[in-house]
Nucleic acid binder design. Structure first.
Lengths: 183, 183
DNA sequence: ACTGAATCCTAGCATCGCTAGACAATCTAG
DNA sequence: CTAGATTGTCTAGCGATGCTAGGATTCAGT
C-alpha cells in the first residue's frame, strides 16, 4: 500500500502545520487570538479538520507546549554550570513568552508527576538537576533542591513577563538566585 | 438629600455582593465558571446590572484580587520572621487558590510598577521585605532580594497548585528556600 | 466503472462578553 | 398631589467562542 504511506505522511505534515501555525499565531498575538476559526483560516482548512487531528483546542496547545519543552531542553543542554543554566532558562522564557505560557502556565494535558510524563519533560528537568547537583548541601535531597531552584526560576520568569517586577534588575535577580545556591 | 445617601449605600452594598459572589463562585468552581450570566443569576439581577458597577468582567476579578491582597497583607503581618512569612504566604496560596490566581496569575487591571499601584499591594510587598531585610548580605539591594524571594515563593505556589511538583516535599521546599536565604 | 471508505465543508448549537432600547420605579419641583 | 425628569432594571440581540452533525466530494481497491 504505497498510498497508505503517502496519506499518513500527508496527515502527519498537516498536523505539524497546525501546530506550527498555532504557535506562530500565539507568539504574534497571544493565546487569546488562537481560536479554532482563525487557526483554521490560517492553515486554509475548515474548523472540523482541526478536530480530525486533535480532540480539542487544548490538545493543540499541549502539542505546542511539548515542542517548547524539547527546545528548552536543548537550550539548557548547551549551558554549562548553574549560572548559565539559569540565564538560558530565563532567556528562553523571555524570548518565547507564548511558548513558555503554554508549557508552564496555561492548563494543558501535559502530565507532570505521573508515568505518562513525556520524556522531553523529564529530560528538561534532568538538565536543571545536573546543574544543581554540585551545590547540594549536607542532607538536602537533590530532587527537592532542583524543584526549589526551578520554582524560583519559574517565579521570576512569570512575574517578569506580567510586569510585576522591576524590568531593570532582571539580571540582578538571576545573579542573586544563583549566588544563594552556590555559596 | 437623605435618599441620596441611602441609594449610594444600596449601590455600595450590591457592589460588595457582586464581588463576594464572584469570589465564592471562583473558589467553588474555578474562574472559568465565573461568567456574566451565572454571576448575574447568583446575585439575582440581570447581566446589565453588573455593567452598571464594573466596566467589564476583568474589573470584577480585579476587585476580587484586591480583596485578596488585603487579606494576604494581614496574614503576612501576623507572621514573625522569614520562615513564618514564607509559610503564611504558601498557606494562603494553597487555601485560596482562586483568589491567588486572580491576584498574581490572571491578567487584571492591577498595576504593579506604577504610581497607581494600590496601597494594599505595596503593603503586602512591604511585609515580605521586612522579613527579608535582616538577611540582606553585603552589597545586595534589599528591594531586589525581596523580589527574588517573592518570585521563589510565587513559583512554588503556582507549580504546587498546577500539580507540577511532587505534592509531598511541599514543606521541604519551603524549608530549603528559607535556609538558602538565612545561612 | 463501481463501491466503500476516507476526507472535507456548510450549517448550526449552546455559550461567551457586552450593549441598545424599552419599560418601571423613584425622586424633584411646582 | 401631580408632572416631568432621573434612575434603575430587564428583555432581546450582536458578534464572537468551542465544538459537532450531516451531507457532499474525492479517493482507493477491485
Amino acid at each position: 500500500m504505497p498510498s497508505q504511506g503517502r496519506r499518513e505522511r500527508a496527515r502527519e505534515e498537516r498536523r505539524r502545520l497546525i501546530v506550527q501555525t498555532a504557535r506562530e499565531l500565539a507568539e504574534a498575538e497571544g493565546w487569546e487570538a488562537v481560536t479554532t476559526r482563525r487557526l483554521a483560516e490560517k492553515v486554509d482548512y475548515s474548523q472540523p479538520v482541526l478536530y480530525s487531528h486533535f480532540p480539542n483546542m487544548t490538545a493543540i496547545t499541549t502539542a505546542v507546549a511539548l515542542e517548547g519543552v524539547e527546545e528548552l531542553t536543548v537550550a539548557l543542554g548547551e549551558a554549562e554550570g548553574l549560572r548559565e543554566v539559569a540565564a538560558a532558562y530565563l532567556r528562553f522564557a523571555e524570548e518565547h513568552p507564548a511558548l513558555y505560557e503554554a508549557m508552564f502556565v496555561r492548563r494543558t494535558d501535559l502530565s507532570f508527576g505521573s508515568d505518562e510524563t513525556p520524556a522531553a519533560l523529564i529530560a528538561a528537568f534532568g538538565e536543571i538537576r545536573q546543574a544543581v547537583e554540585p551545590f547540594a548541601r549536607d542532607g538536602v535531597d537533590v530532587e527537592t533542591l532542583t524543584e526549589v531552584f526551578w520554582s524560583a526560576l519559574h517565579g521570576q520568569a512569570t512575574l517578569n513577563h506580567t510586569a510585576r517586577l522591576r524590568p531593570d534588575h532582571l539580571q540582578a535577580r538571576a545573579d542573586i538566585l544563583v549566588t544563594l545556591l552556590t555559596t
